[in-house]
Design a protein around this nucleic acid. Structure first.
Lengths: 145, 145
DNA sequence: TTGTAAATGAAAATCATTTACAAGTAGGTG
DNA sequence: CACCTACTTGTAAATGATTTTCATTTACAA
């Protein structure tokens, strides 16, 4: 999905088509995975002029609500965003607690979780699934100490 | 493990045995799973008198470091703690985003994640794995709207 | 063009968590 | 036991991401 399709979807949901929102939507869809709000803000400002942080957050909220963007939580006190719905090819990460490097991991337990959840009538909306640890090079450095 | 064993372990690690730390350790081990720092603080104050928030956090940090308590992140802007080491019978949760109810889930993908991670030399230390969604009763209410 | 509900930015508020620092204390030493 | 000193404590302030408030502006239906 490109930003224009997302933009149309927002329109269909009754959101007003403002200049600022368009800028944010464009930038989020231009970026890759795991974009921070701060980073999105500065890219918006660089390329397109005035945008405020609250507007970035508000637009991200509506994109997540609309199922156009995923909110990713790595348990490190910050939130990341990436284009794509919850059912798209979402993926998870190995996060190095030393250097912050993030590696994609192919594995996703969403299916089995949904099955398990179904038993108690629980409806899964978001899956937080990230492994924190040490990447190869940081693990090597650690061993030298 | 009961609180006294944990207490001994802290001693063996060279931590000083202060009144305040003992109170916190007692309370954390008296509580169940997913205790918030705020909740731990107030229980400590109720039963044992003066303790400050920084001391609670500092003690929790050392318990986690010592592998006696787990830090659980549900991606909801807060951190939970529960007695038990990372390798004990740790478990994961279904978290209702509406009413906050948390159900244990038997499933744990730690093994397969470790395998997957090993391929790139990544050493897993902590697994964040929680599903957020709607519990049966909140899902029912949602449908009525 | 106009009215109005929705959206905006600046500044302030939140809220969990952490830090700085002065005052207090555990626990080894003589 | 008295003393020393590094480790701990509590208070108050800092932090940092995110959210709210509110006066001003804007999209868009009529």
């Amino acid at each position: 999905m490109d930003w224009q399709q997302a933009w149309d979807q927002l329109g269909q949901r009754g959101y007003r088509k403002t200049q600022q929102r368009m800028i944010v939507v464009k930038e989020v869809f231009a970026g890759g995975c795991l974009q921070g709000a701060e980073e999105i803000l500065s890219r918006c400002r660089e390329k397109d002029g005035g945008i405020s942080m609250p507007t970035v957050y508000r637009t991200l909220d509506m994109l997540v609500d609309a199922g156009l963007v995923r909110r990713v939580n790595l348990g490190l006190g910050r939130t990341w965003f990436e284009p794509g719905g919850p059912d798209d090819d979402h993926h998870h990460h190995l996060v190095c607690e030393q250097c912050g490097k993030r590696e994609k991991i192919a594995l996703c337990p969403l299916g089995i979780v949904e099955n398990e959840a179904k038993r108690s009538g629980f409806k899964v909306r978001e899956l937080h699934f990230e492994a924190v640890g040490l990447c190869r090079s940081c693990a090597a450095k650690e061993r030298k100490k």
